[in-house]
Computed example of a mutant assay.
Amino acid sequence: MSLFPELDGPPSDRLFFGIFPEAAVAETIADQTRDLKGRLDLSGAPLTPERFHVTLHHIGDYAGLPRGIVAQALEAGEAASLAAPFEVSFDKAASFNNRGNNPFVLQGGEGLAELHAFQKALGLSMAHAGLGRQVARQFNPHVTLLYDRVLAPDTPVEPVSWRVSEFVLIHSLLGQTRHIVLGRWALKG
């Protein structure tokens, strides 16, 4: 018998820290996605604007919502909220090779330096809260636009930028395309 019976079985719940663009920026991303889909002859359905986000740390997939891990994540989020707001800028689109279900994503270069620093600081807060094993060791910030069978080449795009003034802890119901915000923190620094 498991010590954590609520975590037995197939995963149904995902926890992650993320940032979401404000609505006007999400609409700009949606417009770019439609344009890129046509130009690159992609057939996948674009994600809806409210689903556009950058995952900072994938905490895990679980069978049920692990209350202890949620409590640790909330503690880590509170500690990381002392950081200052920062700018992000994504200036290219490309596909990740995922053997047929390829994410087509926005990416960036130098415009994401402060995002990298914040992601690392959040990871330190997670480790202090007891979630060190869930800290992402590698970080390739991106915004998923759609999924497609085709692998699209690196494509420069008009930069999409926004000021990150908050981050969230998300409970994602796997297979249901639903995101439930469990914690939201304004950056205070």
Score class of each variant (00 low, 15 high):
109 G>D: 03
56 L>N: 02
111 G>E: 09
78 E>N: 10
112 L>R: 00
151 L>F: 00
78 E>P: 01
50 E>D: 12
54 V>W: 10
48 T>Y: 06
20 F>R: 11
135 V>Q: 01
93 A>P: 07
123 G>K: 00
114 E>H: 03
91 D>Q: 04
5 P>Q: 12
109 G>T: 01
29 I>Q: 07
41 D>H: 14
118 F>E: 07
61 D>W: 14
49 P>D: 05
160 V>C: 03
26 A>T: 01
67 R>Q: 15
94 A>P: 05
115 L>M: 00
125 S>Y: 03
42 L>H: 02
11 P>Q: 07
28 T>S: 14
70 V>M: 08
56 L>V: 02
30 A>M: 04
63 A>P: 13
146 L>A: 14
181 V>L: 06
145 L>Q: 10
83 A>I: 01
76 A>F: 00
38 G>N: 13
128 H>T: 12
116 H>K: 04
167 F>D: 03
158 E>H: 02
35 D>V: 10
94 A>C: 13
99 R>G: 07
106 L>E: 08
12 S>Q: 15
69 I>K: 04
136 A>Q: 15
63 A>F: 05
130 G>P: 05
33 T>A: 13
82 L>P: 01
75 E>A: 15
89 S>M: 10
178 R>F: 00
21 P>G: 01
117 A>V: 02
18 G>Q: 05
158 E>Y: 00
150 V>T: 15
177 T>Y: 12
105 V>T: 09
154 D>N: 11
146 L>T: 02
24 A>M: 13
23 A>G: 00
61 D>Q: 11
58 H>I: 00
161 S>M: 06
10 P>C: 06
152 A>F: 05
95 S>M: 13
85 P>R: 01
128 H>M: 12
126 M>P: 01
66 P>N: 13
180 I>G: 01
141 P>E: 03
26 A>F: 10
27 E>T: 11
44 G>M: 11
95 S>Y: 01
63 A>R: 08
69 I>R: 13
65 L>Q: 09
13 D>T: 15
147 Y>L: 14
6 E>P: 09
32 Q>L: 15
87 E>I: 00
135 V>N: 10
9 G>D: 15
27 E>C: 06
31 D>V: 13
15 L>I: 07
121 A>P: 02
